[in-house]
Amino acid sequence: MGLVPIAGTSIFDLRASTRGYRLNKMCGSLCSPANREEFKRDEEAYMNRFSLSVAEKRLIRSRDFAGMIDAGMNIYFMLKIGSVTGNSLYRMGAQMRGESYEDFLATRNFKDAV
């Protein structure tokens, strides 16, 4: 009945959701312009407000998107922190694939559709 792991894939289930609850909650808060400004003004204080662990803060500081997913971040919530830190979906994707942005774009059918 449960889901079976798939190579190269994170399956966002309740265990991941519980693990990543603080991270996702912080990212969810970025749906407000005032909160985005506050995050940009003082990232450390913003992370403290959501009681992020030392390891979680390190993932955010280093923009380690693969690490965030492993820590239970949901991809759609990660898009919000990507946006506020200037990382588009495709830039985050290239990093998760372990490729440069340009190398990743070269694998696409029509790379101008961004």
Binding site: I69, M96, R97
Partner: peptide
């Protein structure tokens, strides 16, 4: 589509 992990894209 897949938007995360090594299998992104």
């Amino acid at each position: 589509h897949q938007l995360q992990g090594k299998r992104f894209g």
